[in-house]
C-alpha cells in the first residue's frame, strides 16, 4: 500500500524566491517549502499515521497534510526535489534505521521516498525553467514541476 503525507511548518513565513536563483535581484515571487513523504508499506494505516505523527511531525509548529493532494492552493507551480535513490538521503536513512530498530509489529515499511516541495506564489517572472536550472543538479536530483491553479 502507498501513503503520501506532506508536512508544513506554519511558523515559517513565505520567503523571497529570488534567493533561490543565480541572479538574486527582486523577482516579485515568494515560495514555501514542505516535506513530502511517500511510504510503500503493509499493515495498519493508523499505525503508520501514529508513527508519522510521533516521529516526523512537530506538533507545535507543523501541520500534517494526509494524502497526495497539494497542501497549498493558488500557487503558480511547485517543484519536487528528491535525491536519486543511489545517493545517501540522510533523513531517509535515519528514518529507516529508526523504523528497523523499533521492529513495529502492526506495519512494515517497504519503501520510503522523501521530497522537498517548493510552492511558488506571486506575479513575478520566475519561470519553472529558471527554477529547474538554478535549483536542480541532474547529477544528484530527480525532480518534477507541476503547474497549480494560481495565476501569474
Amino acid at each position: 500500500m502507498r501513503k503520501i503525507v506532506e508536512i508544513h511548518n506554519h511558523f515559517q513565513p513565505a520567503k523571497d524566491a529570488s534567493n533561490l536563483l543565480y541572479t538574486p535581484a527582486d523577482h516579485g515571487m515568494t515560495y514555501r517549502e514542505t516535506r513530502r513523504y511517500s511510504f510503500q508499506y503493509s499493515g495498519s494505516d493508523s499505525a503508520l499515521l501514529d508513527f508519522v505523527q510521533s516521529v516526523l511531525v512537530d506538533p507545535v509548529s507543523e501541520d500534517l497534510h494526509d494524502g497526495p493532494s497539494p497542501c497549498f492552493k493558488d500557487y503558480i507551480f511547485h517543484l519536487d526535489l528528491m535525491l536519486k535513490p543511489s545517493l545517501l538521503d540522510l533523513e531517509k536513512e535515519y528514518i529507516r534505521n529508526y523504523v528497523r530498530d523499533q521492529a513495529y509489529t502492526d506495519w512494515t515499511l517497504d519503501e520510503l521516498s522523501v521530497a522537498h516541495r517548493y510552492y511558488f506564489f506571486g506575479k513575478g517572472d520566475i519561470t519553472p525553467q529558471r527554477i529547474a536550472r538554478d535549483m536542480v543538479n541532474p547529477v544528484i536530483h530527480t525532480w518534477n514541476i507541476v503547474y497549480g491553479t494560481g495565476t501569474a
Partner: peptide, 13 residues
C-alpha cells in the same frame, strides 16, 4: 563529465 561521473558523487554522513 556530469552525467558520466555521477558514480563518483557521494554525500557524506
Amino acid at each position: 563529465s556530469r552525467e558520466e561521473d555521477q558514480g563518483a558523487v557521494q554525500i557524506g554522513n
